[in-house]
Design a protein around this nucleic acid. Structure first.
Length: 485
RNA sequence: CGGGGCGUAGCUCAGCCAGGUUAGAGUGCUCGGUUCGGGACCGAGAGGUCGGAAGUUCAAAUCUUCUCGCCCCGACCA
């Protein structure tokens, strides 16, 4: 019996409106996405959660390949000395290292670090394959697990081991590398918006928020239902930083020795947490149809074997048509009362519930119920192969639209520090303000509006006419402030 | 790493302050039956070294000390 078919696991979840973190934990665990593990800070991803991740992963993998990248696999163990070659990089990551010091019962000559990220390994390895400008660009990606010794962990959002993809590319010119950073950031935007139905802001991170070792970082930032921001994927431009640190050179078109410009970009299982917190409600998960492991759950309602047989016969051709159309449909034949199943599948966020009982069959219909708003409608059996895909598309768009409205209604523009502090004292969300890009301002806001940080510089906003909202100096950009996960 | 909270049945917890039969409840689990259009009910059953160690005591889930673990909130981070 598949794990999620066992009855009886459903329990009450805490209220989203009263205890958001408690609600999140309950939903993740009771919807069977993931659970705590025997190892502190690590999680077990259960089949339903893993299927959700697989759907996101497959969509992204497709985009990565279509943009010319190839999947590789590199070792999880990285010699400590590799990581120490790029000064900023090691400074940013050393506190998070998990290190293997013994092998075969003997202490190793050199400790091996469980990769927190693979820039150093990539530079060390690709050095062997890059000799000429003809070897560029190198467009690589790998799907793997990485390890970071986090002090405070939360299922999917921050664990000491997590799954992701990390793309690493090397280019002949800075311009090409910068284009790559934007291209992959846009793939992430598409994954978030078109697949996960989560509207995001994209842009460059501030100097203090950028990745350790990067010249600049860009990210997609999503708003959760508690108004906090979640950095959901990142894309970094390294310039020649890593190439120089690893003495990775190529012979250029003018027969001169040059350093390639590199990038890296990653999207992790954290995105699953984003899906939970961006869409979920008091009843549990709300999954966008394009990534939902189960898109339509069929609840047969019957009192006798004869009724069951009748429903089976009526459903058979429909189910075949839906399967042929690649819809992900599950029929819940368990011997439980319908109300129990309704609640359980709502907790698990299945976009459409299809109820079919004697009452429906008498009219040649079924009852469709949308998870998003619980609206019901009767649909003739024969119309399902057309009606369901259309309804799934509509739901996908509705969820995204609802997210956009939520984000818009929780975003304000301010032009002064007191206004910013006031907003975060009374409310949550995004604050957009002119900024001079001084790190001192970030420290000041962090202190005065507890925990508020810059998320992204608003792209294309240009120098605002007014001064910096924090310190009054001439502003160079607009920036998004928020409390973040 | 700082602050708070919690470890008693698979899960959620009561019992502890004022130590005293055989440690309870709800839920889940197993078996049988009746049910089934928004979380069903009846009956029978299984399931515990009360996180661990030491101490106080005639007697410890309960008091003392130490220890281990977990969760939440902050700082750091995908």
């Amino acid at each position: 019996m598949a794990e999620q078919e066992k009855p009886g696991f459903v329990d009450k979840i805490r209220k989203q409106s009263e205890d958001f973190p408690g609600w999140y934990n309950d939903v993740v665990r009771k919807a069977q996405l993931a659970d705590y593990s025997p190892v502190k800070g690590c999680m077990v991803i259960r089949p339903y959660g893993y299927a959700l991740w697989e759907n996101i992963r497959d969509a992204l993998d497709d985009m990565i390949k279509k943009t010319g990248h190839e999947n590789w696999y590199f070792p999880a163990l990285i010699p400590l000395s590799f990581l120490q070659k790029e000064a900023d990089h090691v400074e940013g990551f050393k506190h998070e290292f998990q290190t293997v010091t013994h092998g075969g019962g003997k202490e190793l000559d050199e400790p091996l670090v469980l990769r927190p990220t693979s820039e150093t390994m990539l530079a060390s390895v690709l050095k062997n394959y890059i000799h000429s400008y003809r070897d560029l660009p190198q467009l690589t990606n790998q799907w793997n697990n990485v390890f970071r010794w986090e002090l405070r962990t939360r299922l999917f959002l921050r664990t000491r081991e997590f799954l992701w993809q990390e793309g690493h590319t090397f280019h002949e010119t800075a311009a090409e590398a910068k284009e790559e950073v934007d291209r992959m950031l846009d793939c992430y935007r598409q994954i978030a918006e078109d697949w996960c139905a989560i509207p995001v802001l994209t842009g460059r991170k501030s100097e203090t928020e950028k990745f350790a070792g990067a010249q600049y970082s860009k990210s997609i930032e999503a708003m959760m239902k508690d108004g906090k921001a979640l950095q959901s994927a990142t894309s970094h431009y390294f310039g020649e930083n890593f190439s120089r640190a690893y003495d990775l050179t190529f012979t250029g078109r003018a027969n001169t020795l040059e350093y390639p410009h590199s990038t890296s970009w990653g999207l992790s299982t954290r995105i699953v947490g984003a899906v939970v917190m961006a869409h979920g409600d008091e009843s549990g998960l709300v999954l966008p149809p394009r990534i939902a492991p189960i898109q339509v759950v069929v609840i047969p309602i019957f009192r006798s074997d004869a009724e069951r047989t009748q429903i089976e016969a009526a459903l058979a051709p429909v189910l075949k048509a839906l399967a042929d159309d690649d819809l992900r449909v599950k029929v819940d034949w368990r011997n439980e009362r319908p109300g129990f199943k309704f609640n359980e599948w709502e907790l698990k966020g299945v976009p459409i519930r299809l109820e079919v009982g004697p009452r429906d069959l008498a009219k040649g219909e079924v009852t469709l119920v949308k998870r998003l708003d619980r609206t019901k409608q009767a649909v003739p059996l024969g119309d399902l192969p057309l009606a369901l895909p259309a309804m799934l598309d509509t739901i996908q768009m509705s969820i995204l639209a609802r997210g956009r409205e939520f984000q818009a209604s929780h975003t304000v523009h301010v032009d002064s520090l007191p206004a910013l502090v006031k907003f975060f004292t009374e409310s949550t969300g995004f604050v957009i303000a002119p900024w001079c890009e001084s790190p001192e301002d970030e420290a000041r806001v962090q202190k005065e509006a507890q925990g508020v940080t810059t998320r992204v510089l608003v792209p294309g906003s240009g120098p605002p006419t007014s001064g910096c909202a924090i310190c009054g100096k001439p502003a160079t950009t607009e920036v998004v402030w928020a409390r973040a996960y």
